[in-house]
């Protein structure tokens, strides 16, 4: 039985089944909304994790791609009355163009320089959302974004939207699991361990880094469109530097280089502020504390760190019990 747990199709299948059952049990709109947010955040974090966890390239401006998706969808549907699905595709195309424009020069940089370049990019995009008032509505936001619909069915119920968001997110998870398990995935991990070594073994690192950057930007853009059509009102503050940091926190908590960890990280840090709502504004203190503590003691992330601790504990127990001396 335990053997099944190792199979990807088993993991994805049981996770999907679980998700499909949730709305049958949970009928409270608030809980369903939280679940939808978890789905959107998971989509973002799975994408960012491909870049950060697997390829080892940091992005401190990922909220910009999320925002580009949201604003392109929002502006095209609310102002120019385009129907949402083509708008979402245009958003993806635009995001890819921007990601290439920034990624090609930025990904030549490493470490701190890359962190600063992505951070600078994120802040510039945020300022554009705020200042291009004629286009984006400025700081007061963009209103009147329509709900999504499939055919003639309008997805205005949390339950139907829940199924849509999680279907897309689950698709993205499956895609990521396949990427990670493929030749490309191994090449990405090689870049993470040592870029010169990866180049020496014939990996075209420059192109691959840009590729994974663009893929993670696409994930973010789709998440942004889903977000915009869900809450139907967007304002720049949802896409600021703090949100980029929150995404990085989700990756870190879930664990670098773990797709399921990303789901865990997104879920934990989406639910946490809701639980901590009693402290309303002070959740940033807790975010900061989590970031510091996890990174100081478990630089591989919370899930990896917890697994390491468990391994250590088991080893010690076995040594103490003498079970190793027999063999």
């Amino acid at each position: 039985m335990i053997r099944f747990l190792k199979y990807t199709w088993f993991q994805v299948g049981s996770f999907g089944l679980l998700l499909a059952l949730v709305p049958l049990v949970v009928t409270n709109r608030y809980y369903l909304n939280v679940m939808i947010f978890i789905g959107i955040h998971t989509l973002l974090v799975v994408g960012l994790n491909l870049l950060m966890g697997y390829a080892g390239q940091i992005s401190l401006g990922h909220a910009a791609f999320f925002g580009l998706g949201a604003y392109t969808s929002g502006v095209l549907t609310a102002t120019y009355k385009l129907s949402p699905w083509p708008a979402m595709v245009i958003a993806v195309v635009l995001t890819v163009a921007v990601a290439l424009l920034v990624g090609v020069p930025a990904l030549k940089l490493t470490g701190y320089y890359l962190a600063m370049a992505t951070l600078g990019f994120g802040i510039i995009v945020y300022i554009c959302f705020k200042e291009l008032v004629w286009l984006t509505g400025g700081p007061s936001g963009l209103v009147g974004i329509p709900k999504l619909s499939i055919g003639t069915v309008v997805l205005d119920e949390p339950r139907t939207y829940y199924y849509l968001v999680w279907a897309i997110t689950l698709g993205a998870i499956v895609l990521s699991l396949n990427i990670v398990d493929s030749r490309v995935g191994r090449a990405l991990r090689a870049i993470h361990d040592s870029e010169p070594a990866a180049r020496a073994s014939g990996i075209y690192t420059a192109r691959l880094k840009i590729w994974v950057f663009v893929v993670s930007a696409i994930y973010a853009s789709v998440a942004g469109s889903l977000y915009a059509h869900f809450i139907t009102f967007i304002s720049p503050s949802s896409f600021d530097f703090m949100f980029s940091i929150k995404l990085v926190t989700m990756v870190v908590v879930g664990g670098m280089a773990s797709i399921w960890g990303a789901v865990f990280g997104a879920a934990t840090l989406t639910v946490l502020p809701e639980v901590l709502a009693v402290f309303h504004d002070f959740d940033i203190v807790i975010f900061g504390l989590i970031l510091m503590v996890v990174m100081i003691f478990m630089p591989q992330g919370l899930t990896r760190g917890a697994l390491d601790l468990w391994e250590k504990y088991r080893l010690q127990r076995d040594v103490a019990g003498g079970s190793l001396s027999g063999g």
Binding site: I58, I245, I284, P299
Partner: peptide, 17 residues
């Protein structure tokens, strides 16, 4: 560097809070 960046970013958010 990624770990150290995140630690100091965390510290900065913490102090601000």
């Amino acid at each position: 560097p990624i770990a150290l960046i995140i630690i100091t970013v965390g510290a900065s958010i913490f102090l601000r809070g």
